[in-house]
Design a protein around this nucleic acid. Structure first.
Lengths: 204, 204
DNA sequence: TATAATTTAGAACAAATGTACTAATATTGT
DNA sequence: ACAATATTAGTACATTTGTTCTAAATTATA
């Protein structure tokens, strides 16, 4: 048990630095001062490690969303808080999002799982948005399906902000999450009512 | 000359199918019925081919933008048309965007070039947006820097819609570009004035 | 035509990597 | 304590891939 955790931890570290494609079983083993034969006894390949780490990420994100649900009242503040924590979690497992397409291509089971997950998230977001519209924080939609498009773009941003940052971001590393989360909040501005605008000022 | 073009063409084909990381010099050579020794005579490595293809993409996109500038009047229609053509061009070279982070990490010269390009694009977009605001198609900004955020998210979408589609899109392949471009147009809706909304109806 | 330059095929080599196997060691349960 | 199981180190092998080299063939040019 202990060993498996150590492997996952070190792998995450190396994947985040070099990308999951550029790390080999031998490298990980070396860093852990163990033989690669031994490492392969626990995880046959790096793909197996990637899969295990992906599952950890998903579990952590699920826990976040569950906790969000317990707070029965959906507010702008709670949504912003939850998204912030999600961003931080994604940053922790950033190699997954930086190698998103590659990983999905390599490991079909992850792709299938992720597609399922996206469907779920869309439903959850739809509920959140409808609540915020009802409470007069988000505007009534101007055209049909407007918010379903916005939800998709929200998920889209969540999936790829790290990739964009990898290429374009030039600030301090420790400000990265905050910067992009702030960016994320800005995207909601045109959808807000007067009241929503007043409320969001505190977070900009 | 002829041979180099054939290599680029076939490489683009293979890269788009398998991803630039999963294609070797030997594979490309085999598909072209030539020895890999010969291929390496023209392009020492796949990275050189990637770089050449990237330059072709950039040149094509530049040509698009230049043509757009000749039509002195910036309208919603001309902007939508230009973005549509850009989307189609990106689809043509889709491997670059599907392997975006990887390529940028592997080939620093491309990363540097792309960063430069993004700065340019931001300026161009800023001009376009200010024109559309002036013409009463886009709303006056509600809060400071609102449009600079929107411009960033536009570029962001341009860079990663193909990656998102690779994972989530389930429709017909030949409708992909149209679907995502339509998605792109939807993102502008909350920024449009009454007039802008009337004009955009034709494109939805 | 003759010479030089370019292009091509193919072989050879080294490094990296996944995979499998063996034997030794440690741990656990009875 | 002893047998069974789990864990670990290390070796060996096949494959892939980038890279380099040589010699033959083709093309260009004077």
């Amino acid at each position: 048990m202990e060993t498996k955790e150590r492997i996952l931890q070190k792998s995450l570290e190396l994947f985040n630095i070099y990308g999951s494609d550029n790390v080999t079983v031998r490298q990980i083993a070396k860093e852990l001062n163990m033989s690669h034969g031994n490492l392969c006894y626990h995880y046959a390949s790096t793909d197996d490690i990637v899969q295990a780490l992906y599952m950890l990420l998903v579990a952590d994100l699920d826990a976040l969303i569950l906790r969000g649900k317990k707070a029965t009242d959906i507010s702008l503040e709670s949504v912003i808080l939850m998204s912030k924590m999600s961003f931080e979690k994604l940053y922790e497992y950033r190699f997954i999002l930086l190698d998103f397409v590659h990983i999905m291509r390599r490991i079909p089971s992850i792709k299938a799982h992720y597609r399922q997950l996206t469907v779920m998230r869309q439903l959850q977001f739809q509920f959140i948005v409808s609540e915020l519209v009802r409470k007069g924080i988000f505007k009534q939609p101007i055209i049909e399906n407007q918010y379903s498009h916005w939800i998709q773009s929200t998920i889209f941003f969540g999936d790829f902000w790290l990739s964009s940052a990898e290429i374009l971001y030039q600030g301090k590393e420790q400000d990265k999450v905050k910067t992009y989360h702030n960016f994320f909040i800005h995207l909601t501005v045109p959808y807000l009512t007067e009241q929503g605008l007043r409320e969001i000022q505190a977070f900009l």
